[in-house]
Amino acid sequence: MESAHTSETASRPITPAGATASVPPERAARRPRWRRHLFVAAALIFVFGLIFHRQWLPVLVYPLLAPSVSPPHAVDVVWIRSSDGHSLPTEDAIPQAAAILLQNPDAVVIFTEGWPSRLVELGVIPPMVEVLRSALKDYGIPPERVIELKPTQIGLWYEAQAVADYLERHPNSHAVFFVEEFGGRSASLVLRSAMGDAIYRRITLVGVPHPLFSEQNWWRCRAGIKGAMVGYLYLFYSVIEPRPVVAPQPLSLDDFDRLIPECPESQRKSVP
């Protein structure tokens, strides 16, 4: 017995071998109209996208934000870090940190630093932990409630390990980690890799918006567009390699000195 498929094909005209199969005229006539519809639909999507950009542009940066977890009732550790040793990108979170410390008299701030600053080394600025202590003092928080943890090596992965060690010593503590808003997801990947799931679950990441932009308006300023780009590049890298492969090697002042030879012209004339 012949199958339905065979009988259907058998009713079609057979194209000779080597000849190009042609499109039936009714289909060929229909195609341009479909394309016109597609073009109109694309134009409409573009126009609506332009009109309702405030609704969909925030969605573009959702992958960068820290995973949303409901904040725990009793936070007793606030983690603040300086990635470069001479700035606090999450300084707008200081009032929030102070509020937690005022609410819970047993709560402490742990501070870590991602890079040893030359400005601190040369005495241009005080250590960032002192800057943080001074800022919290404005809210009536005594300096001894800010503890500095020293990681074994440079970078967030090692800072997370130091915090994990602290939390292991304090098994009932729960921490809040203030992180740059668009760096939330990448930080969460690094933390999970460095701390392990059990300790990581005791940390709530809170994204602190940049003073100039947030997820709701990042496209309006240059810094916001740059922030989104930076966030995606770090996220991409954190997905592939959350743990640092190569340890950075800070240069000493002598290293810089060795890079530049004496100027031969200056030996001929007096240097002011």
Binding site: H86, S87, E91, D92, P95, I125, S134, A135, P211, L212
Partner: peptide
């Protein structure tokens, strides 16, 4: 300078 909600921490 980047504006800040709190007093500037550094110059």
């Amino acid at each position: 300078p980047v504006p800040s909600k709190t007093r500037p921490l550094l110059p």
